[in-house]
Amino acid sequence: MSRTILFNVLRFIVVVFIQVFLLKNISLYHIVTPYFYILFILLLPFDIPNFLLYVLAFALGITIDAFYDTPGLHAASCVFLAYVRIVFISITVQKEGFDNEPEPTLGIMGFRWFFLYALILTFLHHFFLLNLESFHLSEILFTLTRVFFSTLFTVLLLLISGLMFFKKKVR
């Protein structure tokens, strides 16, 4: 248990650090901007209480907001992401057997499930975030292009990070 807490605290710090000091400076053709920090919310354990999940999502969002000068924007997107995560997991994962599968990582859940999980959650997060940011229906086509390509890039980063820390476990 304490091991899980320690790992997640470390992951929080590392993810914020990578996002703010590395990925914040990346922008390809003004279209692709990766938001890799959602990895923290994706990899929280299955048996986390809903309330704690929302608090952590809100805290992560506000931390990113402080560095990005956009109070509330990332917090709102992260809370939305947390809700989508709860719904997605309740649909695709059986309630029993959480002892064997503590965390939704690539190694434990398999490539197909993790890819779908990352793709859908990333897309919805980016869709919410970028539309809230631009807040203009007249720019919707341009925003959707940004959502599409940014999602591809973020999912690629998520998969790479999943493969870097790959630990095969029998399900």
Binding site: Y54, A66, D69, A75, A76
Partner: peptide, 30 residues
């Protein structure tokens, strides 16, 4: 899950909208 979502989302959006309209939330910035 849904009710908590509403509570937290509204909190975040209130911060977001306040900041945009009145530029009050100076403390959450660089």
């Amino acid at each position: 899950a849904f009710f908590l979502f509403i509570i937290f989302e509204v909190t975040a959006l209130v911060v977001f909208v306040n900041y945009n309209n009145f530029q009050k939330a100076t403390f959450i910035s660089s």
